[in-house]
Computed example of a mutant assay.
Amino acid sequence: MILAGDIGGTHCRLALFRDAGGALEAVHEARYKSREFENFAAALEKFLAASKPGSLEKACFGIAGPVQDGRCQVTHLPWVVDVRDLRRTLKLETVALINDFAAQAAAVPFFNDADVAVVQAGEADPTGNIGILGAGTGLGQAILAPVGADSRYLLVESEGGHVDFPAQTPLEAELVQFLNKQYHRVCVEHVLSGAGLKSLYDFFQARHPEPPPEWLEAELKRGDPPEVISRVGLEQRFVPCEQALHQFVTTFGAVAGNLALQVVARGGIYIGGGIAPKILSLLQSDRFLEAFRDKHKFETWMRGIPVRVIVNDRCAVWGAAHYIHSDRFVRG
């Protein structure tokens, strides 16, 4: 039996898998709200008590933060997770801790058509690098680079969400000035994340001549602000919500295009995270693709890069299981 997990700033998903003739089959899954637990050990204890796994062979956990020497301070949680503690708790020798977007990347070679939605068809080079990025609680990135001719991949983790925000227009320069009041240094994650979507709304609301309607203020107070803003923006019910969502999509396209250039992603770009599937119609729009392709001399080249949105919200936990079960990954 294989234990796998996706440890995020908002949710923690855990699952048990068994080998069914060389393929993985999930036998028990659970998703918890991360902040309901003092630490990951408490969430793991609850899952193990409910699932009663019996004999475990291997375990792997994708975690939202940089992993160094088997240890991670979760970026958006006061949790520290250490692979040595996990080995003792689980009484297992084979335990891996990898970045959560490395876990998403490890799922990519096993995707079928139902796991993704096409944004740009492109033409994938099977020997080309693959870039993965996605917005949720934060902004994650990872890279898959084919190794040799035996379907193996070098899996490279990234903290690309923390690079400087690339303002390209007067409006975006004004946005940076606005965000500088809140952050010492404005990075991409301050725009491309759930909190970033709320910051974009605040920015456009400050420029809007009318105050927000009472019904919207009530929804923002009692609900999840990024979800409310994206829903109201899609429904075109309040202009600053629409503007925030449009800027979010434009920035998403530009940053996805930057990643494609940075890693020479002839194998494609995959967009994961919790936000993308909810705004899929806008990611499939000209707004996203124009920003993605707008790379001067490389515009024609960018049109050939396949772009897919990951619509399977379980891909990170499946990727963690594939990573520990398969011999197809070399970690960079």
Rank of each mutant, 00 (worst) to 15 (best):
F110G: 02
A121T: 07
T127Y: 05
D19T: 03
S285I: 10
F110Q: 04
V156P: 03
G268H: 08
G22L: 12
E174F: 01
L77D: 10
V83Q: 07
Q141A: 15
F111A: 08
R314P: 06
E174W: 00
V147C: 04
D19G: 02
F298G: 01
V249T: 08
G194T: 09
L139C: 12
P212Q: 15
E299N: 09
L179F: 06
E57Y: 01
P225K: 04
K33V: 10
A102I: 03
G22D: 14
V188F: 10
D69E: 15
P170N: 02
A59D: 10
K91S: 13
R266K: 12
Q104G: 11
D100H: 07
P78C: 01
Q104A: 15
C72G: 04
G304K: 12
G22Q: 13
E227M: 14
V307S: 02
D113I: 07
Q104S: 13
A320K: 05
M302S: 03
D6F: 00
G233Q: 11
L144I: 06
G273W: 03
R222N: 11
L90I: 08
R185L: 07
V249F: 09
G196T: 10
Q182L: 14
P170T: 02
A195N: 14
I229Y: 06
A59Q: 02
A276F: 12
D164C: 05
A105L: 02
H11I: 03
A30H: 02
A218T: 15
F204C: 01
D224F: 05
D6L: 00
L216T: 13
R331N: 06
A23L: 11
D294L: 08
L171P: 03
V163W: 07
V67N: 01
F178P: 08
Y153A: 03
L220F: 12
Y323V: 04
E210G: 04
K52R: 13
Q120F: 01
Q236Y: 07
Q243K: 01
T127D: 08
